[in-house]
């Protein structure tokens, strides 16, 4: 086993845990100003927007692949389906697509 790689992995673990942990320690029991509370409540939805685009369009070289997957997910989600159904549905649509149009 390569000890440099193990050391690197431990280092990665430490620097990944710190930003996850710190806010719980720093802001423990602190009441945030009203405006900042509003901003923090916005973060989940803004994060989701940034996580989806443009990433979903870039999953394959062929941009229509990502577009189709996103469109399928949006459509299924629009009809109020459970998240699992949305995930499986998008996979199914893309499986069918790649059978007909090989990448």
């Amino acid at each position: 086993m390569n000890s440099t790689v193990i050391g690197m992995i431990i280092g990665m673990a430490v620097v990944t845990y710190i930003p996850r942990l710190l806010p719980f320690v720093l802001f423990k029991g602190k009441e945030m100003p009203f405006f900042l509370q509003g901003v923090l409540k916005n973060i989940p939805y803004a994060t989701l927007g940034a996580l989806i685009f443009p990433g979903v369009l870039l999953i394959q070289d062929d941009i229509t692949y990502g577009l189709l997957g996103a469109a399928a997910a949006i459509l299924i989600a629009y009809f109020g389906a459970n998240v699992i159904v949305v995930v499986l549905g998008a996979i199914a649509v893309l499986s069918v697509y790649s059978i007909f149009i090989p990448l």
Partner: peptide, 22 residues
């Protein structure tokens, strides 16, 4: 390979599924 490729959309689909109801 086809399955591997089509499953690459899974996490994005999940994000969309979480965002849509809100």
């Amino acid at each position: 390979k086809t399955l591997q490729e089509s499953m690459s959309v899974a996490l994005y689909a999940m994000f969309i599924g979480l965002l849509a109801p809100s």
